[in-house]
Structure formats: C-alpha cells, structure tokens
Design a protein around this nucleic acid. Structure first.
Length: 465
RNA sequence: GUCCCCUUCGUCUAGCCCGGCCCAGGACACCGCCCUUUCACGGCGGCGACACCGGUUCAAAUCCGGUAGGGGACGCCA
C-alpha cells in the first residue's frame, strides 16, 4: 500500500472558516495517523478574487490550530504553464476542443433549458465542428458519453452518475486561464494525491474530474466528501449565525484545543467519547466513522469544551494567553498579584478567556464602586464592626493560605455569633466590588493581606459615609 | 426543472454494514435536588428521538420498496 498523500486546498477569497478548518483537520488527521503527507495548496486560479490577505489569514488560522503541513503552500497561479501544457496535450489528443460559443449565447440557452425543464447542459454545438473560425474561444473537455461514472466515496459509499448528466466542461477560459475543475485534477495528479477529502458540495464535480483523470491517463484517487456545517436554522453556516472565522474564535477567548475537539466531534465519533487530546484524535481517527449527514454548529457545546480545557489547562500557559484580553481592558499586571494565581482562582469559573479577563479585572484594579443593592441587605452597624474585626484579625492571625483564611472566618463567626453569609458576602463586595467571585480565602490569598485590608478599610469608610 | 446526497432526543451523536443484548445509550443545553461564604466546579435525578407508509421476518432503528421533508449541484467561481 502506498503512503497516503492528502491536501487541503482552500481558495484565498476570505479567512479560514470553521467548515474549512474541519476539512483541513480531517485531512491532517488522516495524514498524521497513517504517517502520510499533508499538503497545503492555495487555489488561486481566480486572479480577480484571490488576495494575499486571505492567504495570510488562512495560514494564520492553520497555525493557530496547529494544523502543520508537510508540503507547500503551493500556489496554482504558479502552475499556469503546466496547465497550458496539458490543455495542449488534450487538444492534440482530441480529448478537448475549441468552442466559440459566446457567454451570452450560452446563458440564453441555459435559461431556456431551465424554463423548459431540461438539464441546462452544454448542447455540444462546437463539439463536432471542423472549421476553425477566427474568433475568441474557450477549450472544452470532450466528455465521454454513455454509461455511468461511479466512485466509492469513503464517507458516503458508492455514488453513480449517468454520463448523460455530464456535459463538456470548459477547461480553459477565453483569456487563456484554466478553470478549477481542470486545475484540481492536474494538481492532484501531479502531486500524487491518494485521497481527496473535501466538502460535499464537490460531489457533483467528482464524476467530471474522474473523466478528466481517465482522459489524461492519470490514476484516479479515492474521494471522501465531508458533509457541511449548518447554522442553528439549518441553513448553510454564515456570518449571520455568529462568528465563522477560526481567528475570531481565538479573539473571543477560545483555546485551539477546544475548537479542534469540537470540530472533530462534528461529524466524527468514537463511541461515546467526547474529549480527545490531539494525540488521541490522531490515534483514533477513522475517515469511515465520519457521518453522512450535515451537522449544526452548536456554540453551547463549544463553550463546554472550552471550559473543560480551561479547567484542566496549565495555568502558566493560560496566563500568557490571557494577557491580550487583559490589556484590552486596560489592566496592567506589572503590579499586583501574580497572574498565575489569578488564573488558578478563575479556571473553574470561566468558559472563555474573555470571561476570565472580565472576572480578573478586580484583582488588579481595586473596586471603585460597590454592589450597593447587595450591601443594603446588611445592617450598617454590623458592617462597620465586622469589617473592623476582620481587618484586625487578618493582620494579626498569620494565616497564609486560602484554607487558613477560610478557617479564620469560621472562627470569627463563632466568636461573634455571626452567620457565615453575614461575613462572606460583604467581604466579597469589599474585595471585588460585586457578589460573584472566587472564594474569600482564595481572593485574600491571591491579593495579599495588605491589599485585602486596604480594600476592607476603604469599604468600611464608604459604608460609614 | 434535472441530477446527486441526507433523515435517531432542541443540538452533537452511539447503535445500522453482521436484524433479537434497544419499550434506543452518551454528551451539550434545559429543569430539579445535593454540596456551599457568592458565582462557579462537582455529584445525583428528570425531560427528551428511531421522518412517514408499506413489505420481508418468530423478531426491524437495523433489510427491501415507496412517500414526504431538507440540503447540494447544474458558472468562461472555487
């Protein structure tokens, strides 16, 4: 058995979206699992719409996800001469011919055919003509007629098309540039691609491409067509369903391993397993276990996975990743508590890094206002004495870790016959400004006794005023 | 219109190829309870699906046929 060679072939007309990322992922997984080769090829034959920015955005998305490629990126625009050569070969061999039908003429015929309920395929006007008018022309593939073209899709099983459905597709435009269906075939053949994994919007192209392979004398690769990803309304996933760009997910505070895990489970499964490390997906992946039907992108589940990876992630790494989200909130970590401790106290409380950043702000910027609604639930006099007692005990106790502090508060409660909520909640407000925060002991441990006392005193004064 | 594909809880899916272990399992979300100094985490429980109709069979989510619905393609885009 020859080594697997797969490719991801995006067209650079936009960023890397989640659908493309999943296709890339499946390719990458198959290559890594089998020790094969993963090739990146940029399909930029449409010079009009292709941009350098898009290429960069795609590369950036791939890199962020850790989808490293072994060859490329190759650019189809570098291969124009090669395509020309093959067009000429086909012309010489008679498997292609010049067609002088104008675009307008073709459009008219197509519309008419649709109206009359016929298949809008090329009628073959120029297929058999022998004169060579001196007019602009395209080159068409002389598609074999009769019989059927079939292939065994690795995901969908056997798919067959009657040859009558296939018309003579254009392989070279009037301006001399080659078209997509022709270029893919040449490239996949020349790059010795063994397995073509792509979106299932390409199934209809596959039989034409197979005919081209055969006309050119190339070996036909295997095909695997991955179902699409839909939005919550079951329509093709688009911007109005929320973010579709991989990089947007990074900016919203998602971890690459979470997105990868989410994407791999969208369509593929391994029994009841949900959590897959990079190594596990490589080991367990099987293109045959990819489902045949489209799936809906579910942000809730992505959130759950992201929360999982935040919970179990390395605090040091998370701290690094959190930095940009903090600076966009005008938070500086140059002074104040160690960011790693902050992260640790927040790991179980954040679904995204954005959320973590929101919750981390108070550690660095002392509260400038308090949740007064929550504060008014407590008696003013009680607040004043409680804050004073706690501040004093904090300074004298010598407690040094979260558990110590929590114990200290229990002691204070019994000594003064206070209930824990009477102490905990006002303290939380003093320390963080609000009512939702990590445990009191944790906060003080991270903040340090000195800063904690400063904040408690500030709140005591605020309450007294 | 024509061709191709798809159809299990709201969503992602297991099971389907090799019928019985499935009055259909897991996960997300949702609801409830527990834990608890808040918010979370966690634990426990609940709600909830084989698109429909026929056939084959002792037995069908699983096999066969049809219907309906959805999607894709039909470009001198990729």
């Amino acid at each position: 058995m020859t080594a697997i060679r797969v490719r991801f072939a995006p067209s650079p007309t936009g960023y890397l979206h989640v659908g493309g990322a999943r296709t890339a992922l499946f390719n990458w997984l198959l290559a890594r699992k089998t020790g094969g080769t993963f090739i990146l090829r940029i399909e930029d034959t449409d010079v009009e719409r292709s941009t350098k920015e898009s290429v960069d955005a795609i590369l950036q998305g791939m890199e962020w996800l850790g989808l490293d490629w072994d060859e490329g990126p190759y650019y189809q625009s570098d291969n124009f001469n090669l395509y020309k050569e093959y067009v000429q070969k086909m012309l010489d061999a008679g498997t292609a011919y010049r067609c002088c039908c104008t675009a307008e003429e073709l459009n008219r015929k197509r519309d008419l055919a649709m109206q009359e309920g016929r298949k809008p395929k090329y009628d073959g006007t120029c297929r058999e003509r022998i004169d060579q008018p001196d007019a602009p022309y395209v080159v068409r593939f002389r598609a074999p007629q009769g019989g059927e073209v079939a292939f065994d899709d690795l995901i969908k099983g056997r798919i067959a098309f009657p040859a009558e459905e296939l018309d003579d597709l254009i392989i070279q435009r009037t301006d001399g540039t080659p078209t997509y269906n022709f270029c893919v075939v040449i490239d996949d053949a020349v790059m010795r691609i063994t397995t073509v994994i792509r979106g299932d919007d390409h199934v209809n192209n596959t039989p034409r491409q197979i005919q081209l392979y055969q006309a050119l004398g190339f070996a036909v690769p295997q095909f695997a067509h991955v179902p699409m990803i839909l939005g919550s309304d079951k329509a093709r996933l688009s911007k109005r369903h929320g973010a579709t760009s991989v990089i947007a997910y990074r900016d919203m505070g998602y971890l690459p391993e979470a997105l990868m895990n989410y994407l791999v489970r969208l369509g593929w499964s391994h029994g009841d397993d949900e959590i897959f490390s990079r190594e596990e997906m490589v080991r367990l992946f099987d293109i045959g276990n990819v489902g045949r039907s489209a799936s809906v992108f579910n942000p809730d589940k992505l959130n759950w996975l992201n929360a999982h990876y935040i919970k179990t992630g390395d605090p040091e790494r998370l701290a690094d990743l959190l930095l940009p989200h903090l600076s966009s909130r005008n938070v500086s970590t140059l002074s104040g508590p160690a960011l790693m401790d902050v992260v640790k106290s927040l790991q179980e409380r954040a679904q995204t890094l954005e959320e973590m950043a929101d919750r981390a702000v108070f550690y660095y910027n002392a509260p400038v206002s308090y949740d007064e609604a929550a504060l008014t639930k407590f008696d003013k006099a009680h607040l004043a004495t409680m804050y004073a007692v706690v501040a004093e005990r904090l300074l004298s106790s010598g407690a040094a870790n979260a558990a110590d502090f929590d114990q200290l508060f229990k002691d204070i409660c019994t000594e003064n016959s206070w209930k824990m909520p009477q102490v905990g909640q006002p303290l939380r407000i003093a320390l963080s400004g609000g009512t939702q925060a990590p445990g009191i002991g944790e906060i003080i441990h991270v903040l340090g006794v000195e800063e904690a006392v400063r904040r408690i005193n500030a709140t005591r004064e605020f309450v007294a005023a």
